[in-house]
Amino acid sequence: MHAVDGLSLSVGRKEVVGIVGESGSGKSVSMYSMLGLLREPNVSVTGSVRFEGREILGLADREMRVLRGRDIGMIFQDPMTALTPVYKVGWQIAEQIRAHQDVTKAQARQRAVELLGEVGIPEPHRRVDQFPHEFSGGMRQRVVIAMALSCNPKLLIADEPTTALDVTTQAQILELMGKLQDAYDSSIVLITHDMGVISEMADRVVVMYAGRPAEIGDRRAVIRTPQHPYTWGLLGAVPRVETKRSRLATIPGTPVSPLNVPTGCAFAPRCVHRFEKCDERPVLRGDGHLDACWLSSEQKVHLRAGTLEIGEGA
């Protein structure tokens, strides 16, 4: 099974790259496997992953560990389960600092208090000695963010950081992440299923389908002129607060399971615009704004206009 297949991606310094896709699209798996977070014995990753010019795929676990947590911080989807329930939050932050830096317990704790303050937790001196269950969901996510930032990472990987949160809390967390990105000069890889979140945060977008990149481009370009029919569907299917449409554009069928990705274009079975050529696997093409679809640019403009009409018609 190919959970991720042929993903090439580069993240520049201070850049925010969004990876968007539905469940099973391989968006999380790709990041986890690169960082050696997948412990299953039958997972294999091939290809090349370079971090600051250095090949990190196939690094020994010991060397990888130094990278994880120090140079690369991670934020996860569910803050309710991301922290070890039996330790105080300050202890957990200090644990990471002490794993990477030669500091005393007291120094690490002091840094934990500062970090909690920085991520907007009121009364950090008191909260540092509380357990995860004494924090609300949004506050826990702040703790996770504080932990991810504790060693000033150069890259932050955020896997659905706001999906489990309420709208107002999501806004708080997104605002915080934006602010911290400026302060810490880190690059961010933002994994999400929500085009809205991408639109708020990302500079560049990778749309994934069935473990393969379907479209890569500048955030605004992808939202304004999406090239891949899957992206059209993804954008059209989301009900928006600003406009009311009587019917949502839908993508027929369900997301394909990575267990049986069709030969040829993975999206073809659900694509209303498929033609003979789609039996062959498309390659990512384009100049800056890449997509993996056999349709010509003229066809795309024409067909997309058609979808929009259906979507917005009575």
Binding site: R65, G69, M74, F76, T81, A82, L83, T84, P85, Q96
Partner: peptide, 19 residues
């Protein structure tokens, strides 16, 4: 427990498998 989210977090923190 090793499949729990907090273990994933601990790995992401760069802790040793033993710890």
């Amino acid at each position: 427990a090793l499949n729990e989210d907090y273990v994933r977090t601990a790995r992401a923190k760069g802790l040793s498998e033993r710890r």
